[in-house]
Design a protein around this nucleic acid. Structure first.
Lengths: 207, 207
DNA sequence: CACAAAAGTGACGAAACGTCAATTTGCGAC
DNA sequence: GTCGCAAATTGACGTTTCGTCACTTTTGTG
């Protein structure tokens, strides 16, 4: 073998710097959004956080908004396998719900470790939920719910509404949890799981 | 009485044009956001929709974002009395929940009559959760829930989380409803009310 | 009517945007 | 190695939007 052993990844320097630059921009953008807030941040601020020139930014993204969408999309992409594992390892429907919420709450706690401006200001005013990976997460949730219904683990409900309800609950209760000084992931997950399974009775405090 | 009869409203022309101008800007902004999308819209686009000069804009708002917040705030302000009436007229806790959701879904259907860009791209309604009126809506929901708990109409749950869950559900299921060709407000309200009261069992289809 | 305070106006400098001709870098061919 | 071409980077430049401010107009008051 005269070739180097690294022929499993036939990746040239060209492509490598390309993904590296894209990543550098995304990382810089995260930091800038956290520090200045999304609205106040400019494309120049972002590119200044890398060693690239201003013109190069536009080789990778059309605008600040597109960078944000890419960040959101990346987040969803990273979360998806976690969600899938939660489903595959679940012993029961209740178990699935609980571990999925635990996974999500854990994920957002991690994702907001960066300090800076309040979390609300790091996002655009209008959050778009229709990026490809975002949609995929919704589809995954919905599919899981439909499977559970088909399998008799859950009553025959409107899976679309239910998936939306789950996502809405996860988002809002998740944000509320982040606002609290102590991020009690299990308590939050217990709350929402109980609420979904048994309604208010199920969400009641255990004290 | 030598004075004119209109002394019940001691409002001079000064104040009158002031509120009129502010309102004109907000209305123009709504239209511009609907037509161009929020991100693409500029302060100049907005002011062009009124008969005011560009400099005048800054007498009323600091930026496009502040206009958006004002629109959101106005939406919340209009919704609050509706929510309050739902509570005061409710015969029971279940009735309160149901009519509150009906009111909200009705509200967002009305609020999205304007045609233009896809709803995701404009959205001058309930999204930002940290404007004064928005917070007031949250407080109102939470207070209602705490009252119900104290009165024994609901189990002893974490009212903060529950309020957030209700709001999250309302937003997401509301959006899902808007996406459907037929906006069946009652069906959506039945779904979420059942879900909250009895969990999945309560949300099951009635067929 | 006169005068002062408040509000409106639009031109102007500053800031951010997005483009592009010139330059550098990567990569295959010889 | 080096030659040549394509791809990517660069930063200066023209353009667009921003936000301000000196000036004008409007409103309220005596």
């Amino acid at each position: 073998m005269s070739e180097t052993a690294a022929n499993v990844e036939p990746i040239g320097k060209r492509e490598k710097t390309k993904v590296a630059n894209r990543q550098a921009i995304l990382i810089a953008a995260r930091a800038v959004f956290a520090e200045l807030g999304y609205e106040a941040a400019t494309v120049r601020d972002i590119i200044r956080g890398t060693d690239l020139a201003s013109g190069t930014f536009y080789n990778y993204f059309k605008s600040k908004e597109e960078v944000f969408d890419a960040l959101a999309d990346d987040g969803a992409r990273r979360f998806r396998p976690i969600l899938r594992m939660a489903r595959e390892n679940a012993k029961s429907f209740e178990d699935y719900l609980h571990s999925a919420f635990v996974a999500y709450f854990h994920f957002i706690v991690q994702d907001n470790q960066l300090e800076g401006r309040p979390i609300e200001e790091r996002r655009p005013h209008i959050l778009r939920m229709d990026t490809p990976e975002m949609t995929a997460v919704y589809q995954e949730v919905r599919q899981s719910l439909e499977d559970a219904i088909a399998h008799g683990d859950a009553p025959h409900v409107d899976a679309d509404y239910l998936a939306c309800a789950c996502i809405g609950i996860a988002q809002e209760v998740g944000s509320a949890m982040l606002r609290r000084s102590l991020h009690d992931i299990d308590a939050a997950a217990d709350f929402v799981t109980g609420l979904l399974l048994k309604g208010l009775t199920g969400a009641a405090r255990k004290d």
